[in-house]
Design a protein around this nucleic acid. Sequence first.
RNA 1: GCGGUGGUAGCUCAGCUGGAUAUAGCAGCGGUUUUAUAAACAGCCGGUCGGGUGUUCGAGUCACCUCCACCGCGCCA
Length: 949
Amino acid sequence: MAHELKDTLQLPKTDFPMRAGLAQREPGRVAHWEKTGLYDLIQARRAGAPAFVLHDGPPFTNGDVHIGTALNKTLKDLINRYKSMQGFRTPYVPGWDCHGLPIEQKVSREIQEKNESVTTAELRARCDAFSETWIARQTAQFKRIGVLADWKNEYKTKAPAFEADIVRSFAAFVEHGLVYRAKKPVYWSIPFETALAEAEIEYKDHAAIAIWVRFKVSAEEAARFGLPADKPLSIVIWTTTPWTIPANLAIALNPEVDYVVADLGAERIIVAENLLGAVIAAAKLQATPVIVVRRKGAELEKLAARHPFIDRASPVVLADYVTTESGTGAVHTAPGHGADDYLTGLKYKLEIYCPVGDDGRYLDDGRIPQDLVGLSTLESVEDLAAKKTSSANIGVLKKLDAAGALFAKAKYTHSYPHCWRSKTPIIFRALDQWFVALDKNHTRSTALAAIAKIAADHGWIPAWGEARIHGAVESRPDWCISRQRSWGVPIPAFYDAKKNAYLDAGVARAIADKLARRGSNFWYDATPAQILEGIPLPGDWPPPSALTCGRDTLDVWIDSGSSHAAVLKRHQGNTAWPADLYLEGSDQHRGWFQSSLWTSVIAFGAAPYKAVLTHGFIVDQERNKISKSSAYEKPQTSDAYVAEYGADVIRLWISSQDFRDDIPISKEILGHVGETYRLIRNTLRYQLSNLFDFELARDGVSYAEMDTLDRWALHQAAVLIRECTAAYENYEFHRVYQLCNQFCSVTLSATYHDILKDRLYTLGTRSPLRRSSQTAIHHIFQALVRLLAPVLTFTADEAWSFAVTGREYSDASVHLQDWPVAAAEWTNPALEAEVAALLRIRTQVNEAIEPLRAAGQLGKSLDASVNLVLAPGEESSRVAEKHRDFLPELFIVSHVTLTPSVGAAFAVAVRPSSELGHVRCPRCWRWVPVLESSSYGDVCPRCVDALSS
RNA sequence: GCGGUGGUAGCUCAGCUGGAUAUAGCAGCGGUUUUAUAAACAGCCGGUCGGGUGUUCGAGUCACCUCCACCGCGCCA
């Protein structure tokens, strides 16, 4: 009997599974989207619409997609999908950053391990192949997390046409007269005879010899500065790299620090006052120094000391970086052998002097003492193990000793950069490099103006991005754009036998045209004559036969920084210049945002983007950064996370975080997000399953005829749509997450859906009240699934397919729908206020039920009967009175009585319905005064109606 | 060391131009239901808003100092 009764209920029905099985089932949807050509369908649908171009910053192609990269790409995908549903045409051309040191390093290491020797062109071909395999893998990984893009029109910085545009960017620099050649110190690996980049050095402890050296000050010079000249006077410097002494051109003092002339008896020395004691101690002198004179460093500027064993002056210069934490406060300065020294050298117009050759040996330049020429500055791994220092260091020590200049020496262990491959200490060595003069031709001011213009349009998101990039652009020194590397775009410069450089914008552009057809290996394979064939040369150039090709490549930031020119300017994949949005991590203010700005400002006079959105970096739960190398339980790759949680949970996690700040990730956090996912999924499932016999056209109820609670729900949906839309517009996806989460759990699951069960399940199929609720559910589902579609791309699409066709896969896609809009009539604040008041009473009812439950007098709320003591005139009493017939359903109880009581306060009382002598209807479980008979036995009058309809 | 950003319950987030008892969801705890059932509902617990000082009738909100984290830059001669 009971079983038959249950069969008369309209229980929910759907094939939409409760359990998502994301990790297993999502790949099927990726394939489905590929098959149906979803990206193209979306584009075709908006063919005539205004464009929103989000220009993709290219990830580096040397490994699996890191979770941070996945976050970046997913945020882009989310925005594109939202904008598309909002009615924009959203061409999205993904890119790949292919050139550069990390790839060349990895490939070189492989070659080295196999003891192969290859030509530059072969090395480049292997780098190309290496990059290509990662492009394929990363593409699959991006698709797997639901990134929808124009993969067939993707851009690669290594593609010949792209390389040509990189060279054209460079040609624009030349055209504007910005490119010049100068010396600059670089990290140099002696064993490999190559310049190293920051990434190729590692800091290790190094046992060095620290020396204190006298730089004599002549009597005349001393007198000129009012210093006592009756005893030998010298400035004492300190250094841990004795081999750089031959290149010494100056002594740097801090202008603010107090220096003293200290009398040691036989001689006098000049050092910082704070360090005098330490210097005396280093020299193991017993004498108590007597301070004769005290001067600020600034007062000693241009005092000319003498080099200890080379006949030249070493003048005092001033530098703020000089400290009194170690040494003597007087810093030995060799502009060809140190970054600071270099800058000081430029300031004082010193020669950038580097008397050390590629092999690390002193050159015979006519200035280096003959007994030092040929000595090596290299300390091999064996030398380091044996604690032997370099022959150059020993040679210099001998010379200093012989000259009587060695004031003291000591062992000194410090952290020092080493070549990561040869494990030997690097040296700083000045080499000729190409630079871009950023202050020429108003370049910097134009760039700053472009930044300000974007700020005026609120294009820096968050707003502090403006300060970031402004600072970076304002303070950037001239841009060193040459690299002594092979895997990159060649700098189209030529050299004659005397190493004079030849560079011309027109020639560079002509070469770019050739590279576009033949690829950049042409530069490495062909002779200068072949390269220059058919290209008119400037009048002052020698014939091609007298030239050789330069071997430097361009800084890879010019590669990616040219993407706006190579992709947007050429409308690749129907894009347009400038981009509406660039979106990358906040480190790119100094990286891609900046390099793109420079190339664009120089070539086109304006920024390549209208707005720039930045996100923070992924950190672990302790707020420590998650680096690619750190030892975590599992690799921090996109695929590893997707395999464990599914792409939609990862995407939901991404949306849940305020990405402008640090973005924490952990098992706990993802676990919570997984809970939210299940809540949302179940909410959608409830709606789908209760619409199984509903068709809007056939069964829909007009708003005017809808039930109060259903109208209330539509009001809530309208609010949700409005607030979510505002959040999406402001790129505040975490608000979307919070809003949808609360809507699903509080508004729907705990309130609306719970109350609706009675009418949906037990009323007659075509009962107007049931149809009213189904109409509301239909509208709410339509809104909710679309609001979620940009985030939960897989689940929303799956739910949509079930809603439209009842099947898991179909041609219908939520991603081809418009953004939801609430009908104006849904917004009904007066009704909302009344229901809100009733819901507050509902909470009181629930609180009153709880003690009875604890006492075992009640089980489910339907067993309860409620009496409200009304206080006439009071608001909740008024509202309760007005909606008295609605109260049992709203409270999910069987019976509600109202007892007006003048003078009493509003109160809630609950008792079991059985105490009223009521009986329980076996069909709908409500307690009623009497049951009536039906063909299914005795049921309540309402169920009799339902069964007969 | 410098510049930027942030720090609100175990977790993720509200809190607008300073105003009363500081949000909500999730998690946790012990319950209810078996008609969304590897689901659903109700109740309870939980925060001196990183720390300090100041301005104010009143500070999570403003100022200064300090600690911690992240991004960028620099330094270790």
